[in-house]
Design a protein around this nucleic acid. Structure first.
Lengths: 224, 224
DNA sequence: CCTGACCTGACACGCACCTGAAAAGCTCCA
DNA sequence: TGGAGCTTTTCAGGTGCGTGTCAGGTCAGG
């Protein structure tokens, strides 16, 4: 799927772009409304991530314009805390969902999945980890039909590991995914969450690579 | 369900809006054709209540325009006694039903229900939630043959959850389904209604996902 | 056997959520 | 018109879960 990211904050944009790319999607990142309009005319996107407050005007104009043109591209608004009124207006203009900054990347994954599914009727995919069936977008894990509940942070860690499948993820990468916005952490939080996940999911699911990071092994990816 | 009310009579509009809201539906009330067009482009409605005689032109234009655009939104025409010819033309333009002013609100309820039911894809399907049998279109819930009564808002919340089945619905999504544009709510209304539904339907029916939203578990969908 | 990296049980705090009850608003009917 | 009987909304107090932190234990490698 192809995503258009409209965001002028370089740091956030970079993080989001990297994350979305790591999910296997093509990402075009633009920082102005001007460029966004050009891109929209040139390419059909599966999803747009839109920051409303841009240096060259309000993203609402763009959104209204799109909907006026019968462009039904799913849109997720990225909004700062103090711009809640914008988001209401945004939804009224035809946006599909919104995320309040700062958000964590796992939640972005979930909302993207939800919006995409709502539109495209894409059957939800699931991953097999041994006897586990994991549906990240549904926030659901089954072991032999039995539900396993994870908390928000636990999901965020698992999402990060799953996004890289079979590749090694360093502790600092996980921290960045959890606290992307400056909220530095100075304890062994990641270790704790890995431990909690292992307790719930089984000891073998997450492998430790001393001095390097962690790795998760996905057996298979299927769709219902 | 979300209703668009197009009516320039302030007193009647007020009454209708209040009544429809009391049935648990979200109502957007506009008084001009201009605004109606804007709303229709921004939002998908389950039903439109349309007064044909408006200050800025005939509602028939709007109706014809909609049907020309393949917009199949159900429409009930609200017509004054001396505009019977309008109503005939309205039906020919693709309206679904009409009400002659002054009408009583009970009749409005009935006709709205009839129209909505006519449009519901599968006639009288029901959903199984544990020991519950739920018929949303009939506004009916049975537990072992025993009727359970829900109020308007309770139905609205339940409808929203059922519409997404097994998927997660955020608190704000529920609020948006319940309240019309701008009617921001600043209390824990959604929590209260979830609590009431659990009291009536059973504690396990609605699952809480902390910081994310709610989810309902539908075992099965059947038709009588 | 020592060192550093990692694991994990326990705990305190805060926040999200729950819920009973009171206040406000509605509809309907006499 | 007014009041009975709902439903809806608000509020406040309580509860429990999630989170981050730490300390002591375990393990691998040199």
């Amino acid at each position: 799927m192809r995503v258009l990211l409209v965001e002028d904050d370089a740091i956030l944009g970079d993080a989001v772009k990297a994350h979305v790319a790591s999910l296997g999607h093509a990402v075009d990142w633009v920082t102005t409304l001007e460029d966004a309009s050009v891109s929209l005319r040139a390419v059909t996107y599966s999803l747009m991530l839109l920051d409303l407050r841009l240096p060259d005007g309000s993203g609402l104009t763009l959104l209204r314009d799109m909907r006026g043109r019968e462009d039904a591209t799913p849109v997720i608004i990225l909004t700062a805390h103090d711009q809640i009124s914008d988001r209401i207006e945004g939804l009224n203009c035809g946006a599909d969902d919104y995320l309040v900054k700062p958000f964590n990347l796992g939640e972005l994954t979930a909302r993207m999945g939800a919006v995409a599914r709502r539109y495209a009727r894409i059957p939800s995919t699931f991953l097999c980890l041994g006897e586990l069936k994991v549906q990240p977008t549904e926030r659901r894990i089954l072991r032999k039909g039995e539900d396993i509940a994870l908390s928000g942070r636990e999901w965020a860690v698992l999402d990060t590991l799953l996004a890289r499948r079979t590749a090694i993820v360093s502790k600092s990468q996980i921290e960045e995914a959890l606290y992307a916005f400056g909220a530095e952490i100075e304890s062994n939080t990641v270790e704790v969450y890995v431990s909690r996940l292992r307790k719930k999911l089984g000891r073998e699911v997450i492998e430790t690579l001393r001095g390097v990071g962690y790795r998760i092994k996905v057996d298979d990816v299927k769709a219902d």
